[in-house]
Amino acid sequence: MKNYKTINFIREGGIYFIVLNRPEIHNAFDDLMIEELIDAIDTAETEDCRLLAFKGNGESFCAGADLNWMKKMAQYDYNTNLEDSKKLSKLIDKIYSFAKPTIALVHGAVIGGGNGIVAACDLVIAEENSFFVLSEVKIGLAPAVISPYVIKRIGEFNARYLMLSGKRIDAFEANKMGLVNLVVKQNEVDKVYKENVELFLRSAPEAVKICKKLIRDIVNVYSYEEAGNITAKIIAEMRVSPEGQEGMNSFLEKRKPSWRKNK
């Protein structure tokens, strides 16, 4: 695996971990971390990855943008800031659009842009000690780049409340709003994580890839009128595909499909 300065990139079989690794500043990100995250995600996308998980070293998952980096960027002109912001937008979209399941394993603080990483993942498992803050308005900014993903996660009016007030919420309130899927005790994280990984790995790899793209396109691309014809074509193609045939035959023959030989 590649070596990076701000993240750890770890492979365990078909499971890939991206670990934010700036614990001295609570894993706040800067331009280098953004570039390294994009590169790691691209690498996982091209390899035999079945699932991608995000974690943070130290006391926090992610404290948002590195203030020293933000201070530096404030000295540059609009065009430079625009190009810089597009890189963060590219990162969050890559997480949201990643072809295989994504999990965020959250603990401690999730501040500002860190909520974008969380919101873009398929499954968010948070330790009960976690807290979440969309604090940008407190320093005269807005959570602009991450807003499409946060709003998808928690809805318009929950987003209005948190984005306009900058209120800190705990893991249980984040769960009620939909930002977090599961809240667990610290000693239960590994157990709950492994249970959910097992669920994902039982699913047919190509079907998962198609399903993720289907969900993304239904929400963001297709009109209601388009969706009927397009989805009919998708299921017809999947039924006659090698994986679809194997899945249906294994069900009728009461055996495990080929992708579950060791499951």
Rank of each mutant, 00 (worst) to 15 (best):
N79M: 15
T80F: 15
T80V: 15
T80D: 13
L82I: 14
E83D: 15
E83F: 13
D84N: 15
S85H: 11
S85Q: 14
K86E: 14
K87W: 06
L88M: 14
S89Q: 10
S89E: 14
K90G: 04
L91Y: 09
L91A: 10
I92N: 07
D93H: 13
K94L: 11
K94Q: 12
Y96L: 03
Y96K: 11
S97L: 12
F98W: 03
A99V: 10
K100F: 04
P101T: 01
P101C: 06
T102H: 02
T102M: 02
A104W: 00
A104E: 01
L105Y: 06
L105M: 11
V106C: 05
G108H: 06
V110F: 03
V110L: 00
I111K: 10
G112K: 07
G114D: 01
N115W: 03
G116P: 05
A119M: 04
A119Y: 05
C121R: 07
C121D: 02
C121S: 10
V124H: 07
V124E: 03
I125Q: 00
A126H: 03
A126P: 07
A126K: 01
S130D: 02
F132C: 01
V133A: 02
V133F: 01
L134Q: 06
L134D: 06
S135T: 03
S135Q: 09
G140H: 04
L141D: 12
V145T: 14
V145I: 14
P148S: 01
K152D: 13
K152M: 08
K152R: 15
R153K: 14
R153G: 02
I154R: 00
I154F: 05
E156I: 08
N158G: 01
N158S: 10
N158P: 03
A159S: 14
Y161V: 10
L162Q: 07
K167W: 03
K167F: 08
I169V: 13
F172H: 13
E173R: 08
E173F: 03
N175F: 05
N175M: 15
M177E: 02
M177C: 06
G178W: 00
G178C: 07
G178D: 04
L179G: 06
L179M: 15
V180F: 09
V180M: 12
V180T: 12
L182R: 07
L182T: 11
V183T: 07
V183C: 05
V184Y: 00
V184D: 04
V184I: 08
E188G: 04
E188M: 08
E188P: 03
V189C: 08
D190W: 02
K191A: 13
K191V: 11
V192F: 10
Y193T: 09
K194T: 09
E195F: 12
N196F: 10
V197M: 08
V197C: 12
V197N: 11
V197D: 09
V197F: 09
L199I: 15
L201F: 09
L201H: 06
R202Y: 11
S203Y: 04
S203E: 13
A204K: 09
P205T: 03
E206C: 08
